[in-house]
Design a protein around this nucleic acid. Structure first.
Lengths: 217, 217
DNA sequence: ACCCACTTGCTTGCTGTTCAGCAAGTATGG
DNA sequence: CCATACTTGCTGAACAGCAAGCAAGTGGGT
């Protein structure tokens, strides 16, 4: 009958899409089977359990990320440019990568939000996802003092690239930043890179005090 | 006999916490009842349906946000400082507010992420959540030219403040930015504000090209 | 004949919703 | 003061639907 590998990867694809779109709990194995063009029970047949399927999906995502990070790294090293330019290039590449894989971003975002009834045995998978991020961190770090400006800037880079993927057609649209077309994204990318460059040049100074809120609720 | 208002708000509190922590689908009305200290059937008794309960939770969140935004706005107007300082203060306040209400952030983040995790009749509630964000956007905006530098910077501000709440003990920790204590958060806030100030000073220039990826997957 | 990929039927447990009922109050009338 | 009728807040059992997991199949290729 049908090819097992083809079915496996079809199921993996379908599951990744559905988990990213609806979340783990809201996705049934029957849905996955339907989307993958197989029967209700086939996902369970191949992966044993829903949790294992999810784990496989996360693993595959992390592998892809690791690969992309690695290739991006070697590329950045080869070009013998200034650290600022290398960082700017890396930021741009990261931005492009995330925007090319929104499904991955949503998947990891859901995992990071956590809770969502992820069985305990998946915690390793989630940790792997975090490690992939941490790897990016290591590659880019200039001054690895923890809690220092380098870490802060790195976190800012991640924030800037991450957010506009997740909230491209909600928040971004609401505040007047279109991200639908390629030129739109290029504009956004240019802004992010400019911000990062500016942040590289200007180290943090103590800001004027902002009143602390003793908020209720 | 029990007080109805007390029960209602206990249920609302419990539901908000659980929806934020686990997501909509992964939270059962029985869980809500248990956490609220009432019986399994009471949430349904008061709110009619799970969807309506969720809607009520979102509504309450949005009200709180609107109120905070309004008060923050008047405060920013009163102090007759320079635009840069006003913006810096607003960013700081926004940062503080989000970090003081992580539950709200996670709730809205889930709403923004989750297309079909929620039944269709809740779409209005989700839209309301997004509008709350958009409202914040409007209040903070200085120069409303759409797609221009102001919008870009505003989106960056939202990204920077938002991200560190959601990923405080995952990504941030992984890249070496602690956010557990108050001084930690103050350091982060100072960095964000410094970045924004730097971005205010340096308008975007065309960046050196970063090779476009023809990525598979 | 046998394996391999896959399907279908069934069980079991959980979840939302409904509902009859109960306990604690409040109003009414004597 | 008390008894009766009625309302309100809340409970827990019953019901129906769905989803995961298992087991017994089907069927084609070798």
């Amino acid at each position: 009958m049908g090819n097992a590998d083809r079915s496996r990867s079809a199921i993996l694809d379908a599951a990744a899409a559905l988990f990213a779109e609806r979340g783990y709990t809201a996705t049934s194995l029957a849905d996955v089977g339907l989307k993958a063009g197989v029967s209700r029970g086939t996902p369970g047949y191949f992966f044993g359990s829903k949790a294992a399927l999810y784990s496989a999906v996360i693993d595959r995502c992390c592998d892809e990320v690791r690969q992309a990070v690695r290739s991006g790294r070697t590329r950045a090293m080869e070009s013998g440019r200034s650290p600022q330019d290398i960082l700017a290039g890396a930021v741009g590449d990261y931005f492009d990568f995330l925007h090319a894989h929104p499904e991955f971003v949503r998947l990891i975002e859901r995992a990071a939000l956590g809770g969502e009834e992820l069985p305990d045995e998946l915690q390793p998978a989630v940790t792997a996802g975090r490690e992939a991020l941490a790897a990016i961190a290591d590659e880019v770090a200039l001054d690895p003092s923890p809690g220092g400006d380098a870490s802060q800037l790195l976190l800012s880079i991640l924030s800037l690239c991450w957010f506009s993927v997740i909230h491209a057609d909600t928040v971004a649209a609401a505040v007047g930043v279109p991200l639908a077309t390629d030129p739109d994204r290029e504009r956004r990318k240019a802004h992010v890179i400019a911000l990062v460059r500016a942040g590289l040049a200007a180290p943090a100074r103590p800001a004027p005090p902002t009143r602390k809120k003793a908020s209720h609720v």
